[in-house]
Design a protein around this nucleic acid. Sequence first.
DNA 1: ATCCTCCCCTAC
DNA 2: TAAGGTAGGGGAGGAT
Length: 701
Amino acid sequence: MSDDGWSSMGGYMEAKIQKLEKQFQEKSSRNEQLSSIFNKVAIHVNGYTNPTADELKTLMAKHGGKYHAYYNRKINYTTHVIASNLPRAKAKDLKPNQKIVRPEWIVESITAGTLLPIQPYLLVANSSVSRQKILTSKKEGELLDAFFSSNPSTSKCIEDTTPQVKPEAGENTPQCSTVVANHVNQQANSRTSKIAATTDSGFLDEFYANSRLHFISTWKNDLADFFKVTVTKQSTSYWKRRIIEIDERAKSKVIMHIDMDCFFVSVGLLSRPHLKGRPVAVTHHSSYSEIASCSYEARAAGLRNGMFYGRAKELCPDLIAIPYDFEAYKDISQKLYTVLASYTQSLEAVSCDEALLDVTQLVEDTSLTPQVIAQNIRGKILDATGCNASAGIGPNIALARMATRLGKPNGQHEVTLQQAEEFIRDLPVKDLPGVGRATASRLRELGASTCGELQKIHPDLLKKEFGNKTGQKLHELSKGIDEREVCQSKERKSVSADVNYGIRLKTEDEMKTFLNNLSNEVSSRLKKTGLSGKKITLKVMVRHSDAPVETAKFKGHGVCNSISRSKNLNEYTDDCDIIGREGITLMKSLQLNVTDLRGIGIQLSTLTSTSSLSKSRLSIQQFIKKGKSCRKSSDMQIITPEKKIDSEKKNVRLMILPSSVLLIPSHSNDSINTSFLDALPEELRKEIEKDYKAQKNALQQ
DNA sequence: ATCCTCCCCTAC
DNA sequence: TAAGGTAGGGGAGGAT
Ligand SMILES: Nc1ccn([C@H]2C[C@H](O)[C@@H](COP(=O)(O)OP(=O)(O)OP(=O)(O)O)O2)c(=O)n1
Ligand SMILES: [Mg+2]
Ligand SMILES: [Mg+2]
């Protein structure tokens, strides 16, 4: 059973890589240079590629090239940007004529033993077209294998022959290539005091380059995209079949939840196998540093992810701290998703180490039991990543997720519909997905610490206490009911950038500088996703009046009040200057003492795709689309019929503008000339009128 | 009723 | 030292 259909496809690219790795091993020495093919080449890898960024880095090192973890705009510095798909490559602010080359150029150059011309490998507007051109000689199956095979045989963890010295190193410089690691590291240190100031230009970059939460948030989106691309290319016929069959689904579903065990730690241990079985945590070694992930041995002592290192050390004096390795996490995540993509199209990316799969169809098609499928998937993940994954199986998302907890570590668990109520009865309410500290505490006050107790609370009381929807949800969850669908991709509703660390501003000017820098960040994120927003929200954390000026945690925010203020702009925008200006205005309106600011964030919502903001407003109809599909033409998704109907109204969006030109007549009077509006549906007209009003208000100010 | 703004909560 | 981000769901209460 492990060999039918999807399993072990001999990938074209994998075969090549494997061969290359054999070469390395034959030449043995890790640092030996195999060639100098890429003598004058310095690459930067953009987005997800096959081979992965990490593998490309190794290949470059072995063949005389340079690898830049960060794109460098300086002339002749980064010579080639490597990417597999265009949207994400376009995202970065590349040099005007920056050549973007597909990763196969590297691999095939090495195979050929010489630097091949980049022409055939250039990434052009429609990447899939050029891709097929290059490989016309391949049959479709091989083509798929070549780029998307899940065969993991080549990616066995590369044994680091030199056993790592313990943790002290604290080295952590994802932003520099291996060659110059030490040198740059020193530089970074000597720079530290300068960069520390909140307003320095390097502050944001430095922060985001080291923020784990920023990374995992970013990766989640990237992986969802990566998965979408992968799956879209994989099998058209299966895809079509899937869409049709989703209609006649009235029977019970099989949902599978896959989650890597102590993800950051597991990845860290790949190069530190001697630490397996010991209490290990990924963290900086300082008492107010947060633990990103800790091993199960550490959890036995009461440690939890998110805990401060100081407290963790009290609970577990033997705790071993290992440093972050963001590139490796990203790499392993990609491998995880590559494996998952070979099983199903129906996947929801939960995070970089976790996904939901609707395997209903797969179970039916293969007549395998969900348990067997889970076993198979977990085996493939282990092969591909060297790390353990656990799985939960259930008739809905909530139960599948709860089942995973039972399966962990390195195991799996299935909850059937029949077992559901009993399974759930003795669990603490905190274990229900969506119930966190605050809700659990309020429930405890209502006498419900366990799900069984929650089941007995009348839904009306829950609705009264928590509101209609939340009350209903709590009631259903307590009985193991969860109607949500596994959803491949949802429409983005906001784009934001927040910094609640290291914010220490002295003057109003510094505040402005920082907001401008942050606006720049938000602006490039909007551009990266091709979106523009109409509503801007400023979020700030302000030192609580009782809280000391010096926080316990170095550069932490301490005890704060959160405040947000938003404004509806008159136009959709992704413009850094506008966002900065509006952000500053909002900040001023709050009348705060800038020295008390401890966190600042800017969010744009009410989004539309920038490409739809055509300058010509002649044919309005052309810009009015259904929300779900308007943004990305290539966006293939599973939309269930009932959901579509339900959300149709809300998703109708207006994409005209700039509205200032459209709506405001020079002799501003109260009524719009609505002759052309009459043809539009009611909602659209209302929205236009609303816009009109907003503009008028703005003008009157 | 429904929408809007300003929260709070949750998850990784 | 230390890197406490980010997106979405949804409630309260006021405006429409
Ligand atoms: N407070 C947190 C929680 C998580 N993470 C990161 C590190 C984790 O390794 C990764 C995945 O989160 P999980 O909740 O899946 O936790 P683990 O994978 O570490 O452990 P588990 O075995 O419980 O899944 O996200 C983090 O940085 N900070
Ligand atoms: Mg995990
Ligand atoms: Mg997880």
